[in-house]
């Protein structure tokens, strides 16, 4: 297999169970969305990983850049009050 002429890249997100968030599983090459979905099924659902799949063109994903890490993320470092650790969580409330 050659690496030349690869199809465009798609990112694959798999949902493990109904109601759970989709998680990034990896990527596939495919010519269009139908092929991307089939390739994603073949690569990322072989071992019962999930019940639903999203495929997204990698070019459609907007990512933060490493240079922005400081201004993007550091301001939250010293704001511990944003964590819900100052509340008593009622015993009846699960999944927090």
């Amino acid at each position: 297999m050659s690496n030349d002429n690869q199809f465009p890249l798609w990112e694959v997100f798999v949902q493990a169970k109904s109601g759970t968030p989709y998680k990034h599983a990896g990527s596939v090459h495919a010519a269009d969305k139908e092929m991307a979905l089939m390739n994603a099924r073949d690569l990322y659902s072989r071992r019962n990983e999930g019940i639903a799949i999203w495929v997204v063109p990698a070019s459609a994903i907007v990512a933060s850049s490493p240079e922005e890490t400081g201004s993007f993320f550091e301001p939250s470092n010293d704001k511990a009050y944003r964590h819900p650790t100052f509340y008593e969580i009622p015993a009846e409330v699960k999944h927090i």
Binding site: M1, F7, H29, N39, D42, L43
Partner: peptide, 15 residues
């Protein structure tokens, strides 16, 4: 298997 036209399709046919 290992001779497919590209990686994803190789795995599809092996499946």
């Amino acid at each position: 298997c290992s001779n497919g036209p590209f990686l994803e399709e190789d795995i599809a046919l092996s499946n």
